[in-house]
Design a protein around this nucleic acid. Structure first.
Lengths: 233, 233
DNA sequence: ATTATATACCGGTATAGACCAAAAGTCTAT
DNA sequence: ATAGACTTTTGGTCTATACCGGTATATAAT
């Protein structure tokens, strides 16, 4: 094992939570108890907990204990995690309908934002996203063709982030986002089962790999009534 | 001094950097040296450094040392910086009109979010914010009366964040935010010089001091057409 | 039954030491 | 002069221990 002990413990605890050993709201054993259980000092154990707190998986309260957090998972939403994970984290069943899916030449704006060279092709797809069957958003995603090379359509549409990590060992790093509000057009309203003129939360996002290469440019329109964006700074 | 030693050292070092004692790219003394200088254990000193690294002010390299990083500016935007600084950063002249300003008893929701005790009073103010003279947002801010005690109205309304830092030595820490979209009501439309039913970007934010005390609860409605929210993750 | 009060437990902070691996500096043999 | 081998310095990890103040709960006093 190359990684430090506290990272291993971090993963151990994370697995325990994912496997249902501890559920949302549960108090996990105290630091002193866990330190004995994992046979490390309390300081080391604390470091493992610390990383989980920073991820929003655990919450600590002085005098009370450490608890499995519920809400905060949403934080990642604003980050580089995809729609699928966000919905799952909220206990909603994610699904999506692909409206279009084509390899094509990028628009000027797309080429600029994805730092493409002349002649580079992109995959552009339009999708409607659902949570528990209700339309949540309509998104247009543009991805450089080189990134999705060799991937099947389901691998791209189902959960691109996971596929990239597992199949191509590409790990998302930072992301730039822009949020604003507008009104639903006729076409969008139809897709999202709302009325024309209803409130829309607009998000555009450029996601970068850890080396700074842009790999996805997404413009999303969320139904204002059905979606909240949660951030923690 | 109530705050932990490592926070004090954190601020000490931060001040040293701001005052130009150490510039961008400079190597600061080693952890062991600084520990001696501040007369604390290396672990405690490390914690101070750690918080500065998390803020992006310092960078650490094993075997080389700890260096002053070049700051990313815009990130604070979505965080605990106020409207004034955001506008200035974009080269727009900020101004605001206070619609109401009263000390009163908090609503249930306010009391809960600001963790108030029974009988605690709050300052509630409604403001219209302008950028270069154009209405950008309407906001309702609720602040515990204890926080603004002894401050003049201009000190609160002009730039609360700066006043708190300079006058009360209160330093903002984290903030929780929620973003969604809705439509403008008649009243809001009038304030913002738009039409009823126009797109509104809604933001509520709870800001906390470094010790976790909530000190401000703000609900803002931005004109969708005139405002974009920029984030970097 | 209700209200104080004591106490055990919790995470937060802090100390003083230790060893490791990566990086940088120094010295040496070629 | 340079490549390679040592040594020192650096941040990263880890231990074992201690005390603090907040929290909850059991116990005693009302």
């Amino acid at each position: 094992m190359g990684s430090p002990v506290y990272i291993q413990i971090h993963n151990d605890i994370k697995r325990s939570i994912e496997s249902g050993k501890w559920s949302v709201g549960d108090r996990i054993p105290s630091e002193r108890e866990l330190a004995v259980e994992f046979n490390v000092s309390r300081m080391t154990l604390r470091q493992a907990i610390q990383t989980l707190v920073e991820e929003g998986i655990l919450e600590r309260f002085v005098g009370s204990g450490t608890f499995v957090a519920n809400q905060k998972v949403q934080e990642k939403m604003s980050g580089v995690t995809g729609f699928t994970d966000v919905m799952l984290a909220q206990g909603k069943k994610p699904s999506s309908k692909t409206v279009s899916y084509h390899i094509m030449s990028p628009s000027l704006s797309e080429a600029e934002k994805l730092k493409l060279k002349d002649g580079d092709q992109v995959l552009r797809m339009e999708r409607i996203r659902y949570g528990d069957g209700t339309p949540i958003s309509f998104e247009v995603a543009t991805i450089p063709a080189t990134i999705v090379e060799g991937l099947s359509k389901p691998e791209v549409t189902d959960s691109l982030y996971r596929t990239l990590e597992t199949k191509k060992n590409m790990i998302p790093g930072r992301a730039k986002q822009n949020v604003s509000a507008s009104l639903a057009s006729e076409r969008i309203a139809e897709f999202l089962d709302i009325k024309r003129g209803d409130a829309i939360l607009r998000l555009w996002q450029i996601s970068y790999l850890q080396d700074g290469t842009p790999f996805e440019y997404v413009r999303t329109q969320y139904v204002g009534e059905r979606f909240e964006f949660y951030l923690e700074k």
